[in-house]
Design a protein around this nucleic acid. Sequence first.
DNA 1: ATCGATCCAGTTTATGGATA
DNA 2: TATCCATAAACTGGATCGAT
Length: 666
Amino acid sequence: MKKVPPKKSHFFKPILPGFKNGLKIPVGFLKYLKGHDNVHAILRRGGKKWVMKVNGRRMEDGWTEFAEEHDLQLGDMLVFRHEGNMEFNVSIFGSSCCEREYAAYMQEDEDEEEETPKKFDLEEKVKANIRTSGKAFPNAEAANKGMHLSPSHLICTIKPYCLTKYFLRIPRQFALDNRLNNRKCTIIMRDELRSWTCSLHTNGNTYIGRGWHEFCTDKCLKEGDRVMFEIVSNGETPIFKFHDLRGNPSHHPEVKKNNFDAKRISDEEKPKANIKASDKAFPNVEAAEKDKHLTHSHFICTIRPYCLSKHFVAVPRQFALKNRLNNRKCMIIIRNERRSWTFSLYTSSNNTYFGRGWREFCIEKCLKEGDRVMFEIISNGETPVFVFQDLRGSPSLHPEVKKNYLDAKRIKTMDATSPKVQVPASTSADANPHFISTIKPYTIKHHVLYLPLAFVKSNGLMNRHCEMILVNEKRRSWSVQLGQMGHHFGIKRGWREFVRANGVQVYILVRMPRITPSEAIDKIQKLLVMGKETGTEASEYNKILSPLTGFSKRRLRLAGTVVVNGEGQKLVSQKTQAAAPLVAPVVDQQNGRNDNGNFSQSDNYLTHLVELDSRLPKNDSGMNKVLSECGVSSSNVSTMVQPQLNAHVDENPQKSMANKDPVALA
DNA sequence: ATCGATCCAGTTTATGGATA
DNA sequence: TATCCATAAACTGGATCGAT
């Protein structure tokens, strides 16, 4: 069939782990972009536009916002239609193979006048029977905003810690109002159908402890869900009546955001502050580390009461540090398309603030509590210049939604940069794509190695229970099991054997580097394309893998569980006969052929290849020697992580089997 | 051995109040 | 009014305990 160039060319991309770092335009598509400005691209959807900065062929700046606003999830498929001049019309298809539906409001342009009353009406319904307590308590924040709840009602937004930490913090004021502070007792939580018994404990703050996790599980609570508790009895055993607000549209926004796979994968957020450094460096959880070298170019600020009552707003610490705004006292210029404002910038007590000029700005922009605005630094000279962007009309940036979301980002920021992480703890993520683990007594005693959350998140390992293979320099491998331990995640089964075999001792540093998820995915994509071509030799795969990751044929055997197409064609390994199709080839929109490395995910399943390769660092006490003796020093510690991205994969035992190929490399 | 639960230290933000 | 200071509050991650 004769090839005819399309009038409007398309390409499509599946949403894969690490997608929030950016999106690469397929190499094969570049021919359609010749002669265009390849530095910027514009994505259009729903009548809105997003400007992307293109680095090479990767859309970076601006992509994160696009992904967030559309709640992109792993397994989604995006079709890009080139309208010319680097403008792309984007269609988004979900895992159902149908175009994703977005609430009408998501597509509305910024129109505060219309939207505000809607929100207000919805909240009014809640207002009718809810009163709030508490002051600056993020979990109860929405309830606080202009709403007056009775002291016996508490609205909570489910934060990450609520799901990972097995407790829920009770706002101080609420606890005080209901005499729950300083109590240690059992409470009963119930809805119309059943009840749950939980413990209430206090240590300065008041918490719902034991039983909370079960409650969350039973109610399928997810981050961002909003629930209300009403104290219907406050005797010896207080009874909390549960009201599910998830069905209330006014409490829904967060849900969307929480569907973010990035979150699901990395799951970790830090809800709290009004301002998050939404730095592009850490646009998402799963690829935090990867992005570390990028810039902290903007932050998003949720307007808090103090922003209006005081004459300043705090600049996120990390943002200030990254942009060297801390310890500066100067004027800054804030501008949008129409005009500019001048603020003073100053630092006090290690905090950096926008000062004089802020109040006028708030008044002029009619900023209200809960509004969100973004400041992007575009010039950082003597007078830093920021571009101001009003996010109030951006649905996915709805105050509550964005808040948690950005909190997640901030966490990332913290994970990456906070001293806490860098200071040797049991495990810590450092700035490189690996983590350093200090072997502590409990690591040996309890036969467990906790993985730094940043590492877990950035690799999409959160909440996965999968096999991981550790390889030392002698090419001996150990199969270990990843899993969750309380609110920790790490290596459980198999760790003891690894410790014994390698003589791992307390205070030895084990450095475990990895490639970034996107690198792994790139490789997989290439392999998949090759896999479509019959007769491809293993050496060809090696050519792809070896230069970047040091993959050997042996390792390829390990990677053999990557299956390349719907017919179950295996990639390399002849040992994985049981392997079921894990990844389906992408079919070109026009001619039905695979498209330059893009691929879709069959059954939302993807095999990650993670290559660890590094030199062990010497610690202060010369422990490297010990490591050498035990055969770990200077080793290529390799892991191949084959996680299950989706629980339903478990339903297919064949696929589960496909994950298990504990090939000893020795 | 594993999982759940809790404690606690540390970080960052929000805010009340003092001061220039 | 603008800025600074101090600290309460919120939240997280690491470590460890206890039950099974």
